[in-house]
Simulated assay, not measured.
Amino acid sequence: MGDPDTEGEGSSEGGSEAETALDETVERSFTCTFCGFGMIHEVPLLQAEAQSVCYNCGDWTTQSADSEVVVRAAETAAEALADGLMTERQALAYLLREVAGLDRQTTADAMESTPSNVDNLQRRASEKVDAARDLVDGLETLESTTAPEETPEELPETPDADG
């Protein structure tokens, strides 16, 4: 059997509760990158950084979440996104790199893989996401050009002020 990172596209059943959770916000602990103070913010599921005023040092700072927490959230999301068009590992590489913004090595470590394999998985997933977006754009264009034109309701005629 081949490497699970490079095997063909898998499939899973959709319609799960995980799909509806992709747009949820979560309360996540973040650490001020200036003073190390921990704070909790409500953020989108895969947000790895937040910017706000630190409650401890009072500075406007970037605060980082624990990457392991973000990886676990991405694994849950990848499971929901893997639908036969892309594998769960492709989805995970895409989510960690493109959405969460983790670096190659952190992503590779989280996936127990190599940075070059993460690059390949991410590239294949990006190609599939772009193709899906093109498909949706094409469908929207077709729908907008073939939709029946709405005719404005005729207004009742009003007599001229002169006559």
Rank of each mutant, 00 (worst) to 15 (best):
M1L: 09
D5L: 07
T6H: 14
E7T: 15
S11R: 12
G14D: 03
S16Q: 05
A18R: 11
L22I: 01
S29M: 06
F30I: 02
T33V: 09
F37C: 01
M39G: 07
I40C: 05
V43E: 11
L45F: 07
Q47V: 00
E49R: 15
C54W: 13
W60S: 09
S64E: 14
A65S: 13
S67H: 11
S67P: 12
V71D: 11
V71K: 13
A73W: 02
E75F: 03
A77I: 00
D83Y: 01
G84L: 04
T87M: 03
A93C: 04
Y94K: 04
L95K: 08
R97G: 00
E98P: 01
A100R: 05
A100I: 01
R104P: 01
R104W: 15
T106E: 14
T107W: 05
T107E: 06
D109Q: 08
S113I: 02
P115Q: 13
S116L: 09
N117C: 03
R123P: 01
K128A: 15
V129N: 14
D130W: 09
D130E: 15
D130G: 00
D130S: 13
A132R: 10
V136C: 04
L139C: 09
T141N: 10
T146I: 01
E149F: 12
T151W: 06
E153P: 08
E153R: 12
E157S: 10
D160Y: 13
D162R: 09
